[in-house]
Design a protein around this nucleic acid. Sequence first.
DNA 1: ATGGTTATGACAACCGATTGTCGTCCGAGT
DNA 2: ACTCGGACGACAATCGGTTGTCATAACCAT
Lengths: 344, 344
Amino acid sequence: MTSTLADVAKAAGVHPGTASKALNPETRHRVADDTVKRVLSIAKKLNYQPNNIARSLRTRKTGTIGLLVPDLTNALFPPIVRGIERVLSEHGLHALVVNTDNNPEKANQLFTALRLRQCDGFILATAFRNDPIVEELAERNIPSVLVNRLTDKKLLPSVSGDEWSAMHVAVDHLISLGHTHIAHIAGPRSISNGSIRRAAFLDAVEEKKLKKDHCPVIVASEYSEDAGEAALLKLFASTKVKPTAIIAGNDQIAIGAIDGLRQLKLSCPEDVSVIGFNDSPLVDRLQPSLTTLHLPKHQLGEDAAVILLEIMSGKRTQKAEAHLLPCDLIVRNSTARMSSKANR
Amino acid sequence: MTSTLADVAKAAGVHPGTASKALNPETRHRVADDTVKRVLSIAKKLNYQPNNIARSLRTRKTGTIGLLVPDLTNALFPPIVRGIERVLSEHGLHALVVNTDNNPEKANQLFTALRLRQCDGFILATAFRNDPIVEELAERNIPSVLVNRLTDKKLLPSVSGDEWSAMHVAVDHLISLGHTHIAHIAGPRSISNGSIRRAAFLDAVEEKKLKKDHCPVIVASEYSEDAGEAALLKLFASTKVKPTAIIAGNDQIAIGAIDGLRQLKLSCPEDVSVIGFNDSPLVDRLQPSLTTLHLPKHQLGEDAAVILLEIMSGKRTQKAEAHLLPCDLIVRNSTARMSSKANR
DNA sequence: ATGGTTATGACAACCGATTGTCGTCCGAGT
DNA sequence: ACTCGGACGACAATCGGTTGTCATAACCAT
């Protein structure tokens, strides 16, 4: 069916080893020019395709990288994956993509499976702030990069949005619209996004000298509409001082929060302004369209892949640098100047 | 670092071949029970992990399947991918996922690369009605399955939504609301979805004895909001008899069409009802929320994977059966009873 | 003429499993 | 006592490349 190196070598009247060297540009100089030509032409004539498995066995390189994402159906990840893939495919590499559903056990299992497949490197979009997989990768010095989510301990290179600045911009925006009572519905604390955005919010509140008890933080149980709605209802049930603006941990929480407001007969943005995070697809077409912080998702993926490739090629050492990409505030209709009729 | 089969064999005092047989449940019967026990316990003690590359080289099975999708950032595909992955991972298989962007050249290149990686099978969500890759797979009898998109020639097993019935249900729904002037904005004709839905629309119109020139079809250049909007404007510019209902080729086209209506100072659903296809995320939260045909995307992926596995294991021969999954009409607010004030 | 490079390519080991063949040994049956 | 059969496991070939070593020959300079 397919011809092997031995076939080519025999047809060219050379030893397989010699044919191998002739075919490989790196080692071609060890072979006479006309021999190279002969081997090359015969290889083409026989439509020779090297067997990657055999090559991998010898070279210990599979050209495969493991890509762990929490959940592809979350619109945040596909653009990241595509960014990664764009860069990888340029270098003849391919990604084994797996979904962990934020389940550490599942993640472990899949990670082990990918390691057994001898992936040359890993990109993780699944990191928890404290993540044994990340520790293992760092310990064993396996080429790997974090994307979007960070760990508390700086163990691996990472590429993520500059959430700290983004949150400050969000708070500034609301203040500029006259808001002084701003709440934050944070994402889960076990994930860096939730925790960093939360810390940045508190920092911004303090920096802008807003009253701390006018700016409550509540944690949503997960990054979902339902959790956002539940959190909002809980927030409004528990605080005496009602906020006139809300910064959500992400777009889904924001959407859920707006649902919650609707239930309370409050409207967005007239009564309460809402800001999301990530700039997910279609949030520009919701009613109201969502003001949100745009995450350069594709770029995140590309940069992560580039860094991984540099580490794998030895052009860069695997040190735990954090690369932060700017997030722009996209102002839409879910934020508005505080109305005078607002509560308090 | 990691121990090999030879290490285990030596420690157990047996030949590597024997150790291999002891480790493999299929061949274990060829080895004495206590030898098996010894090998097993030593393998565990040495934390032996078989080298998949070496195994693949010998067995010609990589446990990898190639998954071609047009574009992961199109929300249609991630659930399909996840469905596939769920089934595959249950069997220890993994998917190499690549995006072709509906670009045949890119598809070819990626397909070739995946073939060189010795994928055991393929799942294609990228098929054109006439697709050389599909022909090659069928010719060479490589285990493979189509998902969501079909080819004109029945060459491979496929799993897709029952679009024919779905379209009939959509037309029925509009007729039951009093509409008699129904237009269809079809998707690209080179892809089965566009062509089947279009043919089904024409069939339904004829079957229901609607006047053919009251039910125009226009083709959008691609499955996007912009193309949908452009198509709608062109439609309303060119027909004397204005439709009071539109069935779009998919949700994105529907959303674009609604934008177009808005430009013409027509509102949905008061003036014109609109139906989408696929039931994409968030279309239930748009204003108006979109009536659409729900595609069981996850199930599509699962079924495709199951069929592929059955082919690969020889439990099923690779015949070109088309598996059609039912699509439910989800009635929301973009369709309404035809108002009496409507044009004509 | 001689010693020393250099170019070339044959050779074989190797990567780490899998698997068919075959020899040996033991016990059972006649 | 002898044969037959089965259990067991050693052995080696194999999958298809890659790569370091070495032999040979040609070439150069002294």
